[in-house]
Simulated assay, not measured.
Amino acid sequence: MPTILYILGWRIFFYSNEGEEPIHVHAQKGDMECKFWIDEEIMDIREAIGYNLTPKARKEIRKIIFQNFDLIVQSWKEYFKS
């Protein structure tokens, strides 16, 4: 389970067996967890799963993902050799 970064209590990661899926990222903080699909072409994200996310936490993690968009895409491509 490669971790991309830790920031503001969030762990941003992906699972090593998900290389056949489109680019996405998981995030976890306390008992909150979520998954966001990454659309590299239009530089956008879409929430796939959100568990126990408060509106404030959802806004925070979306901001973190957008601020680290290039790092997330690069990490995925390097890991999965895509």
Rank of each mutant, 00 (worst) to 15 (best):
P2F: 02
P2N: 04
P2G: 01
T3Q: 12
T3R: 10
T3F: 05
I4H: 03
I4W: 00
L5H: 00
L5P: 02
I7A: 00
I7S: 03
I7W: 03
L8M: 07
L8I: 01
G9M: 05
W10P: 01
R11P: 00
R11H: 05
R11C: 06
I12Y: 00
F13L: 07
F14A: 02
F14E: 01
Y15Q: 09
S16G: 13
N17F: 14
N17R: 13
N17E: 14
E18W: 03
E18R: 02
G19M: 09
E20W: 11
E20G: 12
E21N: 11
E21Y: 08
E21D: 12
E21T: 03
P22Q: 10
I23F: 01
I23A: 04
I23Y: 00
H24C: 04
H24K: 05
V25S: 00
V25F: 04
H26K: 09
H26E: 04
A27W: 01
A27N: 02
A27L: 08
A27K: 00
A27F: 01
Q28I: 13
K29G: 05
K29S: 08
G30V: 11
G30Y: 10
D31M: 13
D31H: 13
M32K: 15
M32Y: 12
E33T: 06
E33L: 06
C34N: 03
K35E: 03
K35H: 01
F36H: 02
F36E: 00
F36P: 02
F36A: 01
F36Q: 00
W37C: 00
W37V: 03
W37E: 06
W37F: 10
I38R: 05
D39S: 12
E40M: 07
E41K: 14
E41F: 09
E41Q: 13
E41W: 07
M43A: 13
M43R: 15
I45E: 08
I45Q: 09
E47S: 04
I49F: 04
I49G: 00
I49H: 05
G50Y: 04
G50V: 03
N52W: 13
N52K: 15
L53A: 10
T54Y: 13
T54R: 13
T54P: 13
T54V: 13
P55I: 14
K56E: 15
K56I: 15
A57G: 09
A57S: 15
R58Y: 09
R58T: 12
I61Q: 05
I61R: 06
I61K: 06
R62F: 07
K63Q: 15
K63A: 15
I64R: 04
I64C: 08
I64A: 07
I65A: 04
I65M: 07
F66M: 15
F66E: 14
Q67T: 12
Q67K: 14
Q67W: 12
N68K: 11
F69T: 08
F69S: 08
F69L: 09
D70S: 14
L71E: 12
L71A: 13
L71C: 10
L71R: 13
I72P: 03
I72H: 03
I72V: 09
Q74F: 11
Q74M: 12
S75G: 06
S75L: 04
W76K: 02
W76A: 02
W76R: 06
K77R: 11
K77M: 03
K77C: 03
E78Q: 11
E78F: 06
E78N: 11
E78K: 09
Y79T: 02
F80M: 09
K81C: 07
K81W: 06
S82Q: 10
